[in-house]
């Protein structure tokens, strides 16, 4: 589902105008990024959790050139779906 489809779907369900939905989505994303960059965990019942995780530095090798690169440490935003979604996905063939 593309962004536009999502917006129109929400529009239908909420019965409000497009700009409202857009700004609300934007603000939701902003809250997630702001909170996660403070290392907070956002837990949404029935969906999953958004959290920031620290990744260690590592050495990776370019398989074609054989050059070794040092990948620096970083913090990434991860989304963990809850078990219901995970198992439903797993069972899907």
């Amino acid at each position: 589902m593309e962004h536009k489809e999502l917006v129109s779907e929400l529009q239908q369900r909420l019965r409000c105008d497009k700009e409202m939905v857009e700004s609300m989505l934007e603000n939701f994303s902003r809250i997630v990024t702001e909170r996660c960059s403070q290392m907070d965990v956002i837990v949404v019942q029935g969906l999953g959790t958004f959290e920031a995780r620290k990744k260690m530095e590592r050495i990776s090798v370019n398989p074609t050139t054989g050059k070794r690169m040092l990948i620096p440490p970083k913090i990434v935003l991860v989304f963990k779906p809850n078990n219901a979604i995970k198992s439903r996905l797993k069972d899907k063939k």
């Binding site: 589902m1 979604i85 996905l89 899907k92």
Partner: peptide, 12 residues
Amino acid sequence: ISEGETLKINSL
């Protein structure tokens, strides 16, 4: 997500 579809939110 449960349907295995791709969901894209532009700002996230």
